[in-house]
Design a protein around this nucleic acid. Structure first.
Lengths: 119, 119
DNA sequence: CGACTCGTACGATAGGCATCGTATTACGGT
DNA sequence: ACCGTAATACGATGCCTATCGTACGAGTCG
C-alpha cells in the first residue's frame, strides 16, 4: 500500500456505484430548482463543466453543497482536474438503471421553462 | 348562486390548476418512498382508490399529510364520496404538461423494485 | 517562495418536513 | 337520535436541508 494515489490526484470523491443509486434520491436531487438547473446545463453541454462555470445565485459553500447532493445521489460524476473540479452527468448509469427517465425530466424542465417566463 | 354545493358534497379540496403544476413540486412529491408507493398503486389500479385502501406503515395523520402533499403538487385528485375520500392520478394533466414523465418514473420504480428485494 | 484561485470543511441558523397523539368534524347505518 | 367509521386539524417534536460566513487545503503561476 505504498501507492496511495492511483490516477495521480491525491483527492478523490466518493461516488455511489451504479447498483447503489436509488430512484428516490435521484428524484429528490432533481427536485431542487438550483440543482435541476445545473443538470440541465450539464445535459445541454454534453461534456464536463467546472463548478465555477455555473453562475448560481448562492455562495460558494452552498454551491459545493448542491454539487455534493447531486454526486451522492449518483446524478453527476466529479473529478479533480488540477485546480478545477469537473462535473459530468452520469448519463450511462442513469439510462441503464432508469431508461428514459432523465430525458423525460429534461424535456419536462425545458417545457416548463418555455411555459413560464422561459428566459 | 343559491346553489352552493355543485356536486352534492359540502367539502371540497384545493387542487392546483393544470397550469399551476410545477415540475419541482412533482419530483419532490415522488421522492418520498411512501408517496411513490401510493402513486404506483394508483397507477396500477387505474381507478380511484380510497385513502383507507392503502396499508401504509404510518399513522392516519401522517397518511393524510402525504396525500395532501401529492394533491397540492398536482399529482393526484381527491374527492369526497360519502364518508370516504377517493384518490385518482391526474394522469391527463401530468401527461399534458410533461409527456412521458410519469411513465418513466413508474417504469423506473418498477425496475428498482425488481432490482432490490422486489415484493 | 509567495500570492492568487478554486473548492472544502466546519460551525451556525433558520425553515421545512415526516412523524406522532389527541381532539374534532362529516357521513352512514341502526 | 345515536354510535361507529373515515378523515382532518392542530400542536409538538426531532430530523433534514438550504443557506451563510469564515477559515483552511490544494494547485497554478508569477
Amino acid at each position: 500500500m505504498t501507492i496511495a494515489a492511483p490516477t495521480g490526484s491525491s483527492r478523490d470523491l466518493p461516488h455511489p456505484q451504479r447498483a447503489e443509486i436509488r430512484l428516490e434520491a435521484v428524484l429528490h436531487a432533481l427536485s431542487d430548482p438550483l440543482r435541476l438547473q445545473v443538470v440541465r446545463e450539464l445535459a445541454a453541454d454534453g461534456d464536463e463543466l467546472s463548478c465555477s462555470h455555473f453562475d448560481l445565485p448562492v455562495t460558494k459553500s452552498t454551491t459545493t453543497h448542491h454539487f455534493r447532493v447531486l454526486r451522492e445521489a449518483g446524478v453527476i460524476r466529479q473529478i479533480y482536474r488540477g485546480t478545477a473540479k469537473m462535473n459530468g452527468l452520469r448519463r450511462d448509469d442513469l439510462d441503464g438503471l432508469f431508461p428514459g427517465l432523465l430525458d423525460s425530466v429534461l424535456a419536462a424542465a425545458a417545457r416548463q421553462a418555455v411555459r413560464l417566463g422561459s428566459r
